[in-house]
Nucleic acid binder design. Structure first.
Length: 496
RNA sequence: GUGGCCGUAGCUCAAUUGGUAGAGCAUCAGUCUGUGGAUCUGAGGGCAGUGGGUUCAAAACCCAUCGGCCACCCCA
């Protein structure tokens, strides 16, 4: 068999023991905060019916869904049941054109192929009818509809699972990554928006990452479009202003000009950007600017309420600011939208979320409002790594290693090792007879903090050589003394 | 989907620009037969991503292909 250079698909990663425990540190932190706010965990399958996912993420999103090839004798089935009949349906001209493309005699003609694809649309579901989870929100909506009779509303759920996107990887972008979502469904109370902001604040302050939490409201964006008298260009406008912090005012101007926004309309928009003063003042001024737009005023009122509730519930560690340029791509948001970005590191958003009034409507359950947020655990990892903020405790390894000179020593150690483990001390015995040097090196490489040496003298006296690998200090102690020493140390650490 | 950069030892990268491949780190062994991290010494490890072309001669130049990184789009 030919030798193969091992590799993993781009955008996927292996995680070594150290990385796994660092990731666990992040997940534990997020999970603890979620649970503190009363959220309950659910899990959904890693793949869904393709029809559950398509059409929920917009055209761009749909392209990034990983489809799963149907199993069975796919090629034979598809060609006998579909391709052959299809080919028969083609007229001569189409037939010729297709053959020359397939034989690479002519360059591929995308428009022609798309037309063909349209003609035989139903073929696709015989090729793939399942797809990998693209996010956690849509599967959650599906879950809510399917389990609506057993769910107690308002339902606060959290979910920490991997998702997959057929994207081209780059910095901070992977094809397999974890999302940590918290959503509440079945209540339109703005208290929930406030709580989700508090969750963001609490998680990132515990992780010691300075972030800015920006909030906006889709209704305000609608209002701006209305005030500009350009309601029909709502999507173009939101996409353009979302790039504000990247391309600046001039970039947005250019973009919107290309989209057919007039100079006078642009001036209305710019007034919203040039607001200054306290948040409260800005919101008051924005209300004026909204003019006759009811929806815009409603959006501002909602934002005011959220900020009011937030103020009542106490100070936040991280800055929470309104940002009328925040839009966010996902098209199912209808109310509040929020996004978290690191302050000191160049990185995309670490999380985002918002309110969606009718997500379950897609699955036949109308009138249920939801609001939720998501944490991008992999990006958070990268940021903590970059800022060197992983605490030492996130690297839990074996606490004590027994090293022995011969088989008699190993046998002598076995019952003592078990005593250690009974006390919940993570313990290993070096399983074979090796030079002491080699065994010590193992302890060192594994970052094991304590080594117990067993040889002739130790077995005779019952006093074991207990070595601290950090200080190099070594003492003769009984196994009981060692255990209580290790337990004391553990307690002391837990205190901190 | 669009554009740019890059594929040489396990990793990070060299080679006076066409003349048959080198360093650091890592690994292993010794210095040290009851003690790891330091120093010193030595060893192993490469059909140069793959396939073709140009040339007396290719890691280097050209083409193709695969893979990686980055940016755009979009997003966590």
């Amino acid at each position: 068999m030919a030798k193969q250079k091992p590799s993993v698909p781009s955008g996927t990663r292996d995680f070594n023991p150290e990385q796994v425990s660092k990731r666990k540190y992040i997940f534990d932190c997020i999970r603890n905060v979620f649970e503190k706010y009363g959220y309950q965990p659910i899990e959904t399958p890693s793949f869904e019916n393709l029809s559950t996912l398509t059409g929920k993420y917009g055209d761009e999103g749909d392209k990034l869904i990983y489809k799963i090839l149907n199993s069975g004798n796919l090629v034979a089935d598809v060609s006998s049941q579909f391709l052959v009949p299809m080919m028969r349906e083609l007229n001569n001209e189409e037939h010729e054109k297709l053959s020359s493309i397939l034989d690479a005699k002519k360059p591929s003609d995308n428009i022609f192929l798309e037309e063909l694809g349209e003609k035989f649309k139903n073929l696709s579901k015989h090729i793939a009818e399942k797809a990998l989870r693209y996010d956690l929100t849509v599967p959650f909506a599906r879950y809510v509809v399917m389990h609506q009779n057993e769910i107690v509303f308002p339902f606060r759920r959290y979910q920490i699972q991997p998702v997959w996107r057929a994207d081209r990887p780059q910095k901070g972008r992977y094809r397999e990554f974890y999302q940590c979502d918290a959503d509440v469904i079945g209540s339109d109370s703005l208290i929930l928006e406030m709580e989700l902001i508090r969750i963001y604040d609490e998680v990132f302050s515990q992780l010691k990452i300075p972030v800015s939490i920006r909030i906006n409201n889709r209704k305000i964006l609608s209002g701006i479009a209305e005030a500009m008298n350009a309601t029909e260009k709502f999507m173009d406008i939101t996409i353009a202003i979302d790039k504000f912090d990247k391309v600046g005012l001039q970039g947005v101007r250019q973009d919107l000009h290309n989209k057919g926004i007039s100079e006078s309309q642009m001036q209305v928009l710019e007034k919203f950007f040039s607001l200054t003063g306290s948040t409260k003042k800005q919101l008051l001024q924005a209300t004026e600017l909204m003019g006759h737009s009811e929806i815009g005023k409603k959006g501002i009122e909602e934002l005011q309420s959220v900020l009011h509730f937030l103020e009542l519930s106490g100070d936040t560690t991280n800055s929470v600011e309104i940002d009328f340029t925040l839009a966010r791509g996902l098209n199912y948001y209808t109310g509040a939208i929020l996004e978290v970005k690191p302050v000191t590191v160049q990185m995309g958003s670490l999380g985002g979320g918002g309110r969606y009034d009718n997500l379950t409507g897609m699955f036949g359950l109308d009138g249920v409002s939801g609001v939720g947020i998501s944490f991008g655990a992999d990006r958070i990892y990268d940021v903590i790594e970059e800022l060197k903020l992983f605490p030492d405790e996130s690297l839990k390894t074996t606490q004590a290693l027994f090293v022995c000179f011969d088989d008699k020593g190993i046998e002598y150690a076995l019952p003592i090792v078990q005593q250690f483990r009974k006390e919940n001390i993570s313990t290993e015995v070096y399983p074979s007879v090796e030079k002491l040097k080699k065994q010590m090196k193992y302890a060192n490489d594994r970052k094991i903090p304590f080594v117990i040496v067993i040889g002739e003298d130790e077995m005779k006296s019952g006093k074991l050589a207990f070595k601290n690998m950090n200080s190099g200090e070594q003492r003769m102690m009984s196994s009981e003394e060692i255990i209580s020493e290790l337990l004391n140390r553990r307690d002391a650490e837990a205190q901190r």
